[in-house]
Design a protein around this nucleic acid. Structure first.
Length: 538
RNA sequence: GCCCCCGUAGCUCAGUAGGAUAGAGCGGCGGUUUCCUAAACCGCAGGCCAGAGGUUCGAAUCCUCUCGGGGGCGCCA
C-alpha cells in the first residue's frame, strides 16, 4: 500500500488531551483518568472534567486546579486553538477558533479518501472473527447481523490505524459433518431415515442433487460442507463482506500446534473417568472442562484453543470474536485456556451479538429451526436490499436485541433512516452539479464566509467525525456510526431547507458549496465504513 | 439454582471507563413547495431512566437486593 501524503491536520481533541495530561502531570504528579470530549454547543466545542477529577484526588477545589492550569492553557492554545476558554461548574470548556473548523473542512472537502484517518491504532494487529457459521446450512439473519457488525468494525479499526484482519472459522469436522453426511445420504435415498441429529431443511435436496454420488457419511458430509460453505461465501460477498482468512477446523486438527498446545496445557490437566480435564477453574472458569473425551476424541473446545493459539502465533495482538448469545458460556473457558498457555486472557475479546427478531406488519416473524424453517440471509437481502440491511443491523448496540422491521426497511422516505442519510449524499452531489452548470465550484472558496450559526454547527459536527472513529475503534461500538450520520444529515437537511446555497453572491455560494462538498464526503465515508452505498442520485 | 444480555417518551432505541437542564427517530396532531431533489423541513405533545436501598460533592451510568423479558448452563458445536 502506498504511503499517504501526510497532512498538517492535527486532531484538536487529541492535542488538548495530551496537553492537559502533560501539564497536570508536571504540576500534580500522577493524573487519574479524565476526559476531553465534545460537549453541548452552549458550553463550547470540547469539555474536560480534569479539574473535577484532580480536585477529588488532591483534596482541593476544582477552582484551584483551574487556577493552576488556566494560564498555561491560555498561553499554549489561546493563539492556536481556542477562541474561548472558560471554567463552568467544574468543567473546562473549549470553544475552537473558526479557523480550526475551516481547516478540517478543507481536509474533508479535498482529501476525501484520507481526512478521516487516525493513527491511534499504531499499526497494532487485530484479528476479528465473525459469522463462522457451521457449514451445514444457509446463513440466517443472526449471521447477517454478525456480518454487518464484524465487517464494519474491521473497516473502522483500519481507519483508526489498526492492522485489522477479518477471519472466518469453519467447523468442517466432527459430529455435525457426519450428521450432515447422513442427511445427504438420506436425501440420496441411501438410507431410510435421516440421522437423529440430522438436517432436514429443503436446501439439502439441491446440495444432494449436485453432489450426485457419495460413498459414505464422511465423504458426503465433507463435500456437502464445502458446497454449503461456498454458498455462504457468495451470500456474504453479496453483502459486501469478504474475509482475509478462512480457517478450517479440519486443518487445525492436522496442525503441529495441536501438540504444542497439549504440552502447554500439560501442567494443568488431570484424568477423570477416562476423560482428560483442563483445570480451567483455576483460571477463572466456573468449572473444569474436558479436553479429550473418554473415547479418545478431543472436544471442540480443545481445537478452539488450538485455533486461537494459531491466531496468536500468526502475530495478532488482539483477537476479537463475535459470537452468538448461546456462546457466552464459552468466554470464561477460552480465556482460561489462553491464560494457562501464557498468552493472556486479555488478548481475547468476545462480543456477544444478541439475537435478531424480524418484524412484519407489527408482528414477529416466527421461525422454527426444528422444522428447518428460517428466514435466510439471502431472503432478507432479496427483500430489503444490502444497504438497508447493513444500516439496520448497525443501528443497535451489539448487546441489545434487535427488532428488524422489514416493512420500514423497504420504505422510501424520512421514516427510513438509511434513505434519510443516503438522500443527504445525493442532495449534496446534485447541488454541486447544479452549481457547476452555473460555473460555480468549491475550489478556492473562502470558508470564513460561513458566518451563520447553523454553518458552524455543521462544521463542528464534521470535526467530530474523527473523534467518532476513535470512540468506535476503542469501544468496539460500530453502532455509533449510523447515529452520527443521522445527526449530521438532520443538521444539513435543516440548513439546506433554510438557506439558499447558490445565490448571486459568488463568494458566499462557493463557501457554502465547500461546506456541502465536505458534508457529502463525510457522509460518503461514514457510509463506506459500514458498507453502505452513497448514491450520487436518488 | 447459577451465568450473560436487556428494562430510558405510546413504539423502536441512543446515552453506562460517574459529571452540567436525560436525547433521537418513528407514530400522533398542526403547518411548509412560483426557489439548488418534498426520499426534505418547521412547530406541538410526550419521562418518578422497572422498583428499593447504598457509595459519592455529583448516579440512567458503580454496588446490593427485588420484579419483568430474552438467552445459556453437555465428554454438542
Amino acid at each position: 500500500m502506498q504511503r499517504r501524503r501526510s497532512s498538517m491536520w492535527k486532531r484538536p481533541k487529541e492535542e488538548i488531551k495530551e496537553f492537559l495530561e502533560r501539564k497536570a502531570r508536571e504540576k500534580f504528579g500522577e493524573v487519574p483518568g479524565f476526559f476531553v470530549r465534545e460537549t453541548d454547543e452552549k458550553f463550547g466545542d470540547y469539555a474536560s472534567n480534569i479539574a473535577l477529577v484532580l480536585a477529588k484526588k488532591l483534596q482541593k477545589s476544582p477552582g484551584e486546579i483551574w487556577e493552576a492550569l488556566s494560564h498555561d492553557l491560555e498561553k499554549w492554545g489561546g493563539e492556536l486553538y481556542f477562541s474561548e476558554l472558560n471554567f463552568v461548574s467544574g468543567f473546562i470548556n473549549f470553544k475552537l477558533r473558526d479557523e480550526v473548523l475551516h481547516s478540517f473542512l478543507n481536509e474533508a472537502a479535498f482529501r476525501p479518501d484520507d481526512f478521516h484517518r487516525l493513527g491511534i491504532g499504531k499499526g497494532i494487529r487485530v484479528n476479528v472473527e465473525f459469522v463462522s457459521a457451521n457449514p451445514t446450512g444457509p446463513l440466517n439473519v443472526a449471521n447477517a447481523r454478525a456480518a454487518a457488525v464484524g465487517d464494519s468494525l474491521v473497516r473502522i479499526l483500519r481507519a483508526a490505524g489498526y492492522r485489522a484482519d477479518s477471519e472466518y472459522y469453519v467447523n468442517d469436522a466432527g459430529g455435525q459433518i457426519r450428521a450432515l453426511g447422513g442427511s445427504i445420504l438420506w436425501r440420496l435415498g441411501k438410507r431410510e431415515e435421516p440421522p437423529q441429529d440430522g438436517y432436514l431443511g429443503d436446501y439439502l435436496v439441491e446440495i444432494a442433487r449436485r453432489l450426485g454420488e457419495a460413498e459414505n457419511e464422511l465423504e458426503a458430509g465433507s463435500k456437502a460442507a464445502d458446497m454449503i460453505l461456498e454458498n455462504q461465501m457468495e451470500t456474504l460477498k453479496r453483502f459486501r463482506v469478504s474475509f482475509d482468512a478462512v480457517t478450517r477446523e479440519s486443518s487445525i486438527r492436522k496442525s503441529p500446534l495441536v501438540e504444542e498446545v497439549k504440552e502447554k496445557l500439560e501442567p494443568h490437566v488431570y484424568t477423570s473417568e477416562g476423560a482428560l480435564y483442563f483445570r480451567s477453574s483455576q483460571f477463572g472458569d466456573e468449572k473444569d472442562r474436558v479436553l479429550v473425551r473418554s473415547n479418545g476424541e478431543p472436544t471442540y473446545y480443545f481445537f478452539d484453543l488450538v485455533y486461537h493459539y494459531d491466531k496468536f502465533k500468526r502475530g495478532y495482538e488482539y483477537m476479537i470474536d463475535l459470537l452468538g448469545p448461546d456462546h457466552h458460556g464459552h468466554i470464561a473457558r477460552m480465556k482460561a485456556g489462553l491464560e494457562a498457555m501464557g498468552i493472556g486472557g486479555g488478548r481475547l475479546e468476545v462480543l456477544i451479538v444478541q439475537q435478531v427478531n424480524l418484524v412484519r406488519g407489527g408482528e414477529r416473524v416466527v421461525m422454527s429451526k426444528r422444522k428447518g424453517e428460517f428466514f435466510t440471509m439471502d431472503q432478507l437481502l432479496d427483500e430489503v436490499g444490502v444497504d438497508a440491511a447493513r444500516f439496520f443491523f448497525l443501528l443497535r448496540s451489539v448487546s441489545s436485541h434487535l427488532d428488524f422491521d422489514l416493512d420500514l426497511a423497504r420504505t422510501l422516505g424520512r421514516e427510513n433512516p438509511v434513505y434519510y442519510v443516503q438522500y443527504l449524499h445525493a442532495r449534496t452531489r446534485s447541488l454541486l452539479e447544479f452549481a457547476s452548470s452555473r460555473g460555480l465550484s468549491p475550489e478556492g472558496a473562502d470558508p470564513s464566509k460561513l458566518e451563520l450559526p447553523e454553518e458552524r454547527t455543521i462544521l463542528r459536527k464534521m470535526l467530530f467525525f474523527q473523534d467518532l472513529i476513535e470512540e468506535i475503534a476503542r469501544n468496539r461500538s460500530p453502532h455509533l456510526m449510523p447515529h452520527y450520520l443521522l445527526e449530521l444529515a438532520s443538521l444539513y437537511h435543516n440548513y439546506y431547507q433554510k438557506v439558499r446555497i447558490v445565490t448571486e453572491d459568488e463568494g458566499l455560494s462557493k463557501a457554502r458549496l465547500l461546506l456541502s462538498l465536505g458534508v457529502g464526503n463525510v457522509v460518503k465515508k461514514g457510509l463506506e465504513l459500514i458498507g453502505v452505498e452513497a448514491p450520487e442520485r436518488m
